[in-house]
Design a protein around this nucleic acid. Sequence first.
DNA 1: TATGAATGAGTTTTCATTCAT
DNA 2: AATGAATGAAAACTCATTCAT
Lengths: 209, 209, 209, 209
Amino acid sequence: MPKVGMPAIRRPQLVEATMAVIDDVGLAGASVSLISKKAGVSAGIINHYFGGKHGLMEETMRSVLRQLSSGVQQRLRLVDRSDPKGRILAIVEGNFDGNQVNSKVTKTWLAFWAHAMHEPALFRLQRVNAQRLLSHLTLELKMLMPAERAAFVAQGIAAMIDGIWLRGALNPDGIAPKSAVAAIEDYLELQLQHASNASPSYPDQQGKN
Amino acid sequence: MPKVGMPAIRRPQLVEATMAVIDDVGLAGASVSLISKKAGVSAGIINHYFGGKHGLMEETMRSVLRQLSSGVQQRLRLVDRSDPKGRILAIVEGNFDGNQVNSKVTKTWLAFWAHAMHEPALFRLQRVNAQRLLSHLTLELKMLMPAERAAFVAQGIAAMIDGIWLRGALNPDGIAPKSAVAAIEDYLELQLQHASNASPSYPDQQGKN
Amino acid sequence: MPKVGMPAIRRPQLVEATMAVIDDVGLAGASVSLISKKAGVSAGIINHYFGGKHGLMEETMRSVLRQLSSGVQQRLRLVDRSDPKGRILAIVEGNFDGNQVNSKVTKTWLAFWAHAMHEPALFRLQRVNAQRLLSHLTLELKMLMPAERAAFVAQGIAAMIDGIWLRGALNPDGIAPKSAVAAIEDYLELQLQHASNASPSYPDQQGKN
Amino acid sequence: MPKVGMPAIRRPQLVEATMAVIDDVGLAGASVSLISKKAGVSAGIINHYFGGKHGLMEETMRSVLRQLSSGVQQRLRLVDRSDPKGRILAIVEGNFDGNQVNSKVTKTWLAFWAHAMHEPALFRLQRVNAQRLLSHLTLELKMLMPAERAAFVAQGIAAMIDGIWLRGALNPDGIAPKSAVAAIEDYLELQLQHASNASPSYPDQQGKN
DNA sequence: TATGAATGAGTTTTCATTCAT
DNA sequence: AATGAATGAAAACTCATTCAT
């Protein structure tokens, strides 16, 4: 008689082990045998639950991305819809959430980004995520500046977020969330000042802060 | 006597083939046999010239980074030393040089960045490069604003450069150099205005443009 | 559950196959693929059980040496502790035990002796074995002659044993155990006579036989 | 125009290099490339002079055996034909000649002995040499004891010689010629005493010494 | 005569996957 | 559900040999 509810235990357990192994030895060195050893189960079990290594990898990447956006969602929920600047900062801060920026997550995230380039399924996943960040930012920025400018600034913020992550992967200590957020907040602030000078029809920003 | 000067032909030929294969199938799929097939030579030759796959990979990464910084160097040579803003833009433009931003180089660059996380030799290489970009930018920015602020802005610019590259890897058409440079130039411009307002002792910027 | 107890079957099976292949084609020709073919299993299994060819070779050498000393131990158990001459002959006979002297074991033994010269782990193994033979012999001879002389004679006997093995490897029919033992017994007899002449305080030998 | 007399230079040069490399890394590790590097020439040259690696190895083995028997021949020339015991000791001493017993020659000699087991040409060479030692010894011993006994003792001496060599290979300091010769001389002496007791028709030995 | 570039066969090893238990 | 024994394909690498120069 099979133990019931095993999938709910085994799947996250294996995904966790996968991240840990990728952190240890890189994506290239993350073999099924290493992952199963880390999880304390047999190698065959991966096929049982994920239909193969590929399935486990996809699930792991989904999990990484899910973790990342859940940090953003959580913080957004705390900020009023009518406070665009606050919401933008929430998005930024969510991206540098405490448990996101340690070396382990940074390396796994980067490994998947590179890997996704040649795996259509993962590529789509990654692209959707990148676009979502952009549209979230654009949506809020449109309340503070003209649409065209909003799109432009959103691209800048998104690039800075990912660039800080990317460069943070080279740092053994990971990313310092505070200075990361400060850099982007500074950028945003300048853009808002610029916007208010150029077109006085978007004065909301000053009032809100 | 054997054919002379072959190393000068074979080594770049194999490095080229390596980039092409990484572009095709990713770093994970870039086997020695695939690379040698692409180069039209036997697999054994890679050991002959690079002492193993590892040597070829390191050389390829060096080549990618070299290409990147040579674009920067070339453009810097055309700009007067007393024009910091011009030099910063030269650095930025060099990073989005025409032959840098096609999908092939972007993907190879990203693949190596991720791979370097677990290869000490490549890691050092990558880190040195990332630091060089930063110090080049800081050096010039110091002529336009206080040292502390210069370091801060340099980080911002570096992050935007790498972030645009990273996000560009998701784009099948590669990076659009013009809008990439425009985004960073805009950021720089705002920072300069801010600096001149805050401390009138760095007025050079206005005169130079 | 998988088939249990396979290691207990596979390991000796692979060691046996290794000896057979070394006998057939020599140590240099004993490839993993040949060995696994002889054992009727796949090549990969060797890594599964021995962690690589090296592990298999070490285990095989241990097995050869174990077989050799078990022959000696067996015969020693049948001889009274107070009969040094009998014990020495038991050691000698054990070294020319029936299943030791066929061409197969002789060649494997010699191949390993030569190979061990450049493999620290095997070298130690071989050296320990050579020393053990010597100390066993010395121990018994000390009851029949002065210590210094005992050490001298022990070296002689050990040399003759190994020399007969070595020269036996050149003989397609292997070693003739009887004449091998006879040659060494003759040597021992002469040494005992010499000892009893020189120092009448070691008369035990005559009484015991 | 070819340099004349090159074979007379190159062949011994390569044979020397081969022995040195076998000493360094063992027969298994002695690749053509390593040998040619040691000799300071190109790899292709070995085919030129020896028709392949095999030819070089055979020549090297011949050289080792030649060196060994030349030591014996030299010493035999100094001893009167009518002094069998002296001639036997000359043979023994020749086998432990100063330049024979260092670790380098010992290891090469042993490596070839083991290797010869599976190379008909080398096997014959080795066998002829082993037989020659035996017949030299028998020839002299026949002048001191009955033919049958002479053959028996010759086997004993030959076994001790080779046994001491074999065991000497395990000793980093090589073989101590003096104690090696002493062990065999002792054995010979006992055999001669025994022979003179058993059959007084072979009294020469005593007179000669 | 001599080189060393180049090859291709063969080696060990890794690894995802399958499967009997 | 879970194991780990077993496989076979593919990987990197080694190496004797060939050959144009």
